[in-house]
Structures are given as structure tokens and as C-alpha cells.
């Protein structure tokens, strides 16, 4: 795995990826179909939607109906991709995703954009810190929180083709660049980015770059950290979690999400049952979001590199 992290931002935004690759899929195979709830302009698909209204359907501001229609389209043999902002792709249409989708064995891909603090200037109403928790509670659901566009590009079609309810939480802007183009990823398999014997840092999405940076800072203090990109939060790569918990004896989870129900909960569930391990977390501590620039919000909710370093220091067993 070629990791090219150097602290710089991804040269391509997620919006740029989605605005080209959703139409690409739609053009390749008539079984793909895309639905949006009046936010096509926000992910750059509006032009395609205007030209192909039967392939990219604007449902208006009616997320519950959009999800239900997507489920009906799945029953009719399509592979629907739905997009709206994260809170509306999770909270707003939860019962529809749960019953019309998962319970009824229909397959839909839900893209929730601007998760957690990346909702930034849209503020607390648009800032989902609970979307992962909600989707984790749906039996059989898949949750993907990609680190960068190279990773998303590698798994996007696999995700859309995968059976069941899938939730892709993705920043519209760019995260830190982590991977070289062309790398391969498997949904459900975490990626080891750094090897270290003292502590394991498990991160996802927007936080992966920060976790690598934290590991580099820890090294200067003599703490060798393993960093794992857990881009699939469900199904969780339990084997990898257990392997590194046993190896390092200390685990820190790092997520742009509430500690309740997110990556911390997922990892803690596994460790509590199979390998009780000292844990710390970098997560939102049961709060609502608020408006502001991303850097301000990351500080405000405790999601900076420094917070990761502190959390790691708190769990490392010093000899």
C-alpha cells in the first residue's frame, strides 16, 4: 500500500469525484440510477441531471419519498444511488432506510455529504454527529467513511454494487491526501498505515490524516504508534482490531462523530467482548454541532492532532 501522506490536501475534492464518477457509472450501465433531494448542485451533478432527468432524478426536498422510490427501483432491478446532506440521509429518512430498505431486502446506496464538523458554515442543524450510530443499528448495513478520493475511487462501484443498505459519509471538500491513485481497497478491511508497538490509533474519514500526523509527533516523544484507517465502520474489521490490540495493548479511536454509537463504540464492542484493552477516544462528547470554520470546530469539539496525541499518551503503558 503506497501511502503518500505529507500533510497536504487531496488535489481533488470529493465533490469533483462524485460529479464525474456518478455520471460515469450511469453512462456505463442502465441499471444504475441516481436520485437527489434538491442538492444536485452541491455535489456537482446538476448539469448531468438536467441532461438526463430519467437517469438522475431530482426528487425535490422530500428525502423520505426519495428513499422509498429508490427502494422501489431496487425491487424493479435497479441499483439506486441517493444523495443528500448527512443529517437528511440518516435522521430524516431513517425509518424508510430501515424498513423500505434493509428490512425489505432492497439495496440502496445512501450518500450523506458533509459529515460532522465538515458541515461547517451550515451549522448545527446540518452537522451529523450521529449518522454512523443510526446506520450501525440497521442489521446488515454497510458504512464507509473514506479517507480521500483515491480510496473512494477504488471502492465506489463495489459499494454501489454491494447488496443491502450502504451509507457513504463524505466531505464535499477535500480531506488530507493519504493514498496514491490506483491503490486497491476491500470493503470491510482496515488499512495499516503506520506500524508501531506502543499504541494503536484507529481512525476514519476526515480524521485519518490527523491520526498519521499525530503518530509522527508521538514518534518524536518515543511512542511508536500503529495507525489504522478503518474506512469501513460496519462491517468492522474485527480481526485487525484484535490483532493490533493484542500487539500494542492500548487503543485510541479517532472519529468525526459522537463517541456514542460511532467508531469508538464499534471498536469497544469488539474489545470488551474478546480482548479487554486500555482505550481512549477522540470524538465528539455527546454534543450538538454549531456553526463555524472547520478548524474552529475541530478545536471546539476536540478533534485536532493535539487531542489525538494527548489521548495516545493517556493510554500508553510506560515502562
Amino acid at each position: 500500500m503506497k501511502v503518500i501522506y505529507d500533510g497536504s490536501a487531496d488535489s481533488r475534492t470529493f465533490k469533483e469525484f462524485l460529479s464525474t464518477d456518478i455520471p460515469k457509472l450511469l453512462d456505463e450501465n442502465p441499471d444504475y440510477i441516481y436520485l437527489d433531494a434538491d442538492l444536485m448542485s452541491c455535489i456537482g451533478t446538476a448539469k448531468y441531471g438536467k441532461a438526463h432527468p430519467d437517469r438522475a432524478i431530482n426528487c425535490g426536498i422530500a428525502e423520505a419519498n426519495m428513499v422509498g422510490i429508490a427502494c422501489g427501483l431496487s425491487a424493479a432491478g435497479f441499483k439506486p444511488i441517493c444523495h443528500t446532506f448527512g443529517p437528511f440521509a440518516s435522521r430524516r429518512c431513517y425509518d424508510q432506510v430501515f424498513l423500505s430498505g434493509a428490512y425489505a431486502h432492497n439495496s440502496i446506496t445512501m450518500i450523506g455529504s458533509d459529515p460532522g464538523v465538515t458541515a461547517a458554515m451550515n451549522g448545527g442543524t446540518h452537522m451529523p454527529f450521529e449518522d454512523v450510530a443510526l446506520y450501525r443499528a440497521i442489521p446488515g448495513a454497510t458504512i464507509v467513511d473514506p479517507a480521500d478520493t483515491a480510496q473512494l475511487a477504488a471502492i465506489f462501484q463495489d459499494l454501489v454494487d454491494r447488496e443491502g443498505v450502504k451509507y457513504l459519509r463524505v466531505n464535499r471538500k477535500s480531506n488530507d491526501r493519504v493514498y496514491a491513485d490506483g491503490e486497491k481497497f476491500e470493503i470491510g478491511k482496515g488499512v495499516v498505515l503506520r506500524e508501531g508497538a506502543d499504541v494503536t490509533i484507529i481512525a476514519s474519514g476526515f480524521m485519518v490524516g490527523r491520526a498519521i500526523k499525530a503518530a509522527d509527533l508521538l514518534k518524536k516523544q518515543g511512542i511508536d504508534a500503529t495507525v489504522i484507517d478503518m474506512f469501513t465502520i460496519k462491517p468492522l474489521d474485527e480481526e485487525l482490531v484484535l490483532k493490533y490490540a493484542e500487539k500494542t495493548g492500548a487503543v485510541v479511536t479517532v472519529e468525526n462523530h459522537n463517541a456514542i454509537g460511532g467508531l469508538y463504540s464499534a471498536v469497544a464492542d469488539v474489545l470488551a467482548a474478546k480482548c479487554p484493552t486500555r482505550m481512549a477516544r477522540v470524538a465528539v462528547e455527546d454534543e450538538f454541532g454549531e456553526v463555524g470554520p472547520v478548524d474552529y470546530l475541530a478545536e471546539r469539539f476536540g478533534l485536532t492532532t493535539e487531542h489525538i496525541v494527548e489521548a495516545a499518551e493517556s493510554v500508553v503503558v510506560r515502562e
Binding site: 423520505a64 422509498g68 422510490i69 427502494c71 422501489g72 425491487a75 424493479a76 439506486p80 424508510q96 425489505a104
Partner: peptide, 8 residues
Amino acid sequence: SQAVGMAL
């Protein structure tokens, strides 16, 4: 909504 999607 499911019926709409099925018919569509």
C-alpha cells in the same frame, strides 16, 4: 413511495 419507485 416504494410503489412509485416500482412503477417508475
